[in-house]
Every structure is written in structure tokens, then in C-alpha cells.
Nucleic acid binder design. Structure first.
Lengths: 108, 108
DNA sequence: GATCTATTTGGCAAAATAGCCAAGCAGTTT
DNA sequence: AAACTGCTTGGCTATTTTGCCAAATAGATC
């Protein structure tokens, strides 16, 4: 692997963000946080996995720069760090209808 | 794992797109294709991996709906299927400067 | 029709990721 | 200060992803 051209820091940052969103539980968390911050226990209830698993997902997303957290009282609240995500996801959702043509190989 | 709420087809589609972009070689391919279509051998030269590896990356991206391909003459040309990607990536790149605060835990 | 060219597919080993349990930890309440 | 609350970390196994090689394929050229 010999990835020239783009600044590698930029590339790594972008890939980290994509990885942070490339999992059903994490995508659901991101979607949910678009309507405002939530504490870890809320997100655990949403995802339905072990608390430790959810915590690890959140750490990953925070380290990628997708989420920010803040401690208030007993709870830790997470929220989205960037607003551009919603726009992108809505665009992707609209892409879905014409998917059949995209999924097939051009050699079929 | 018990992911309620969002239509699961939408969730799966979104996750597939994110996975398709969550790899340095594939992100580089996506970035490159923003300036127009390229054939597989061009992309192999860019990425610097085995041809079969690049081909598998391209298949993954096509199946996720990120790329479309077309055969012309001896070559197969790949291009981006959606234009919204560029906007999102530029937004992410601008996010980078304030990353330090995002990466740290709120409990530090 | 044999050969060449561009690309895909199969198969496998190595590396990365996911998720559970148990244990740790920092504030809070008693 | 003991016990509780909300969350994170360590450790482990199971699953998924990655990337190479070798083999297959489809169309172009000889």
C-alpha cells in the first residue's frame, strides 16, 4: 500500500470519521444525537447492547471527532461535533432508489 | 443488539456507504474520482496495491452504491455515483483544527 | 481460434474489529 | 467511610476485513 498525493493526516482523519459511522449501533447513535444530546444510559437503552460495548462505541466516535462529551451531575452527555452529517445522510437516503443500477456490475 | 426506530434498510444502506469509505485506499479512490472517471489500472497505479486488491475495493464501493462503472473498449471506467460526498468531506476537513478538544474525554 | 489485455474471483493467512464479562474509578448519597 | 451510580477499561474469544497469489473470464487483436 503506497498512498501518495493527499496529505496523510487529512486522509487518516476522514477515514476515522467514516469508521466511526460504519456500524449500525454507531449510525443509530449519530442519527439520534441529531435531535440533541443524550447521556450514555439513554444511548444504551437505544442500542440495546451491554453498557461497556456502548461506551466503547462512544469513545471511538469521540476520538474520531464525531462526538463531544460533557459531564453534568451524575451523567455524561454526548452530542454531535459537526452539523454537516445530517445533510450528507439525507443525500445518501435519496440515493437509495436508484441503487439497483449501482449494485450491478457493468459487465453483467 | 436490538436496533429499533430507523427503517433497517436505510440503516444498512448508510452503514454500507460508510464502510465503503472507511479505508485509506478507498477514500483515496473516492477523492480521485471527484475529478472525473478513471479506469481500474489508473486506480491501481494510484493506490499501489495488487490489482486484485484494488478490484475488490472497487466492487465493495460499487455494491455500496458509491461508485458506478462502465465498460468502454478494453477498460472499465469507474465514477462516483453521488455528488454530495465532496461537500461532506470538505466539511470534515474543516473540522480538523478543533480536533484536540474533541479527542479528549470530558473526564480528563 | 490462439493469444493478449484488463479485470474479476477463489482461497487462504494475517490483522483489525466487536461484544461480553469482570474489574476499576470518580463523584454522590447515606 | 461504606455503599451506590454512571461510566470506562482490561481481557478474552468470535467474527469480519484485508491483501496477496493463483486461476478464471471476457473481449480485442493477431
Amino acid at each position: 500500500m503506497q498512498l501518495t498525493q493527499m496529505p496523510s493526516a487529512t486522509l487518516r482523519q476522514r477515514v476515522a470519521v467514516m469508521k466511526a459511522l460504519a456500524h449500525p449501533s454507531r449510525m443509530l447513535i449519530a442519527e439520534t444525537l441529531m435531535s440533541g444530546e443524550k447521556c450514555v444510559c439513554d444511548l444504551q437503552a437505544l442500542v440495546g447492547a451491554d453498557m461497556s460495548t456502548v461506551s466503547k462505541h462512544l469513545t471511538l466516535m469521540r476520538q474520531a471527532g464525531v462526538l463531544v462529551c460533557e459531564k453534568r451531575g451524575l451523567n455524561i452527555y454526548y452530542r454531535l461535533a459537526c452539523s454537516c452529517l445530517g445533510t450528507f445522510l439525507r443525500c445518501l437516503d435519496e440515493l437509495t432508489p436508484n441503487m439497483e443500477s449501482c449494485r450491478s456490475s457493468c459487465c453483467d
